[in-house]
């Protein structure tokens, strides 16, 4: 039969184990939240793409431009804006990943131009935007 001291030690061990499990659970929950990434798309000029590649995948505001960037939810929508913005000039479509919890801090317009959703990341949020790839194609638009 455990003595008073042993009971105390057992309770302390149980408390520690419980706390450890709690911490582990919290870490797992945090990791789960972190793992929720949303993919967004943006039409960029060759110069912007070059800047992204040069900086190891960082998107940054350009001097003399708006201090933030717009993104949309599909390559097709990005192509629609790209076609309008760059007209006959070349452009590329990039795919980026944004943690869901960060995307919640973007400004969202559900129907920009009455065609589709767009998200605006101000300069302070751009470091959270992870460049994933340049799309090897531009969706065909009728």
């Amino acid at each position: 039969m455990p003595t008073g001291g042993a009971r105390k030690a057992a309770r302390a061990a149980a408390d520690e184990a419980s706390e450890h499990l709690g911490r582990q659970g919290a870490r797992q929950a945090a990791r789960k939240t972190d793992d929720e990434w949303v993919h967004l798309y943006r039409a960029v000029s060759p110069e912007e793409l070059e800047d992204i590649m040069k900086t190891g995948g960082r998107l940054r505001a350009k001097l003399g431009h708006m201090e933030g960037k717009w993104f949309t939810t599909t390559p097709e929508l990005a192509a629609r804006w790209g076609k309008k913005l760059y007209r006959r000039n070349p452009y590329e479509i990039i795919e980026v990943g944004v943690p869901k919890r960060v995307l919640d801090r973007f400004y969202g317009s559900p129907r920009l131009e009455a065609i589709g959703p767009a998200y605006y990341a101000e300069e302070g949020l751009l470091p959270y935007v992870r460049f994933l790839r340049r799309l090897p194609y531009i969706p065909w638009l009728p």
């Binding site: 708006m66 309008k84 913005l85 317009s109 129907r111 131009e113």
Partner: peptide, 15 residues
């Protein structure tokens, strides 16, 4: 090239 809201179309943004 930035979004605006027109007085006569207040529900949508237009670039």
């Amino acid at each position: 090239c930035t979004p605006v809201k027109f007085q006569t179309h207040p529900d949508d943004f237009y670039s």
